[in-house]
Amino acid sequence: MKSIIKSIFVVIFLISISANAQQKVALHHLGTTTVFSGSNPLIDAYTAAVTNDTIYLPGGTFVSPSNIDKRIAVFGTGHYENATSATGKTFINGNIALKENADNFYMEGVEVNGNFYFSENESVNQVVLKRCKINGTLNFIGNLSIPSTNFGLFGSVIIGNIDLANAQNVLISNSILQGRIFNSIGNVFNNNILLDEYAYYGNEAPINGDNNQVNNNIFTKVNFGNLINGNGNVAKNNLCALPTPSFGTLPTISGNYFGIAQSAIFINRTGSIFTYSEDYHLQNTSSYLGLDGTQVGIYGGVFPYKEEAIPSNPHIESKTIAPQTNTTGELNIQVLVKAQTN
């Protein structure tokens, strides 16, 4: 019942935002909702939030708090333009910095115009980013003296590099990664598309680190031979554009597909830059299978990429708002809302 009430609230809130065209943020706390407006509503909502509260962001651009040091959840409308035509995309401007009290932080459906990072040698655990887009870097700053653990990245797009220097037990799954991954020790990368094409030096690789599990991914790199740099990595059932790639020192490799041109992989895409206009579906979903028997890449595995990365809160597909009230002072609003199951 609580989840139904919360879902109804989200729909009403987003409809009211669409009708008023004002920048507002909703804070949900134990069945009570507070709406913030003004010049920095996200900062104001965060300041008022306590542990386990949820912040709902409509379409628009919001300024990030200087630090996030609370266990909260943040939901936006999504970052694909086609999927947010009725609401607008949700942007957070500026860097997002997590502090040690932000265990179990959760964010979904947000595009970040900045970097997302974990503060230096602070333990921030059980963090999940889902169906987000980070236009900067994703960094765990430190030296593993006080590591952050159990981080999950699902169905997202990361434009910059990822540095896991202070991270343990990381799962990056079903995401599109444009930059490179550094300092990864003992982490898991499943069903991703790695677009990195760093061609200046032959020893550069999309993944750098030791003892990682790298399975069911698609590597589009076509220059030089390194896909993984490091020791003891396991690489299974990955699809590789390179015909004879290197997976580092003493790797365990099996079931990989080599020398497959991008033109034979995807429905429609080329190059090493993420764009919304290209199609990352496989031409033949049964030709290249992962360890679990599903297709390699973002649409296979345990957490398949959701079309247009629509977040799990109720989604406004379309809206029609009359330009003026009728003779009785009523404003005609028609909104099509779709419930989300995941």
Rank of each mutant, 00 (worst) to 15 (best):
K2Y: 14
V10G: 06
I15L: 11
I15D: 15
I15Y: 06
I17R: 14
I17M: 09
A19P: 01
V25E: 15
L27E: 13
L27M: 13
G31Y: 12
T34Q: 14
F36S: 05
S37Q: 14
G38R: 07
S39P: 14
S39K: 06
S39Q: 11
L42I: 15
I43R: 13
Y46K: 12
A48D: 15
A49G: 15
V50N: 15
G59N: 00
T61I: 03
F62K: 05
V63T: 14
S66Y: 08
I68H: 13
D69I: 06
R71T: 15
G76A: 01
H79Y: 13
Y80S: 09
N82Q: 11
A86N: 11
N95T: 15
E100R: 10
N101H: 07
A102G: 08
F105M: 01
F105E: 02
M107V: 03
V112W: 02
N113G: 10
G114H: 01
G114C: 04
E120H: 09
E122H: 09
E122P: 14
S123H: 05
S123R: 12
V124M: 10
V127I: 13
L129R: 03
C132A: 03
C132E: 04
I134C: 00
G136P: 12
N139C: 06
N139V: 08
I141F: 09
L144F: 08
P147K: 04
P147N: 04
V157Y: 07
V157A: 03
N161M: 03
A167G: 07
Q168H: 03
I172P: 01
I172A: 06
S173R: 00
I176D: 01
I176C: 00
N187F: 12
V188G: 04
N191G: 07
I193R: 09
D196E: 08
E197D: 11
G202C: 00
E204K: 05
N208P: 12
N212H: 06
N212G: 06
V214H: 07
I218H: 02
T220A: 02
K221L: 08
N226C: 02
G230F: 01
N233K: 00
K236D: 07
C240A: 00
A241M: 02
P245M: 00
S246Q: 03
F247K: 00
G248C: 00
F258I: 09
A261F: 08
Q262L: 05
S263T: 14
I265N: 06
N268L: 04
G271I: 00
I273W: 06
F274Y: 05
T285N: 12
D292A: 04
T294G: 04
V296E: 10
V296Q: 06
I298A: 06
G300W: 07
G301W: 04
V302Y: 09
P304N: 02
K306Y: 08
E308N: 13
E308R: 14
P311H: 05
N313L: 14
P314M: 12
E317Y: 10
S318Y: 03
I321E: 08
T325A: 10
N326F: 10
T327P: 02
E330Q: 12
N332H: 07
Q334R: 09
V337Y: 11
V337I: 15
A339N: 15
T341P: 10
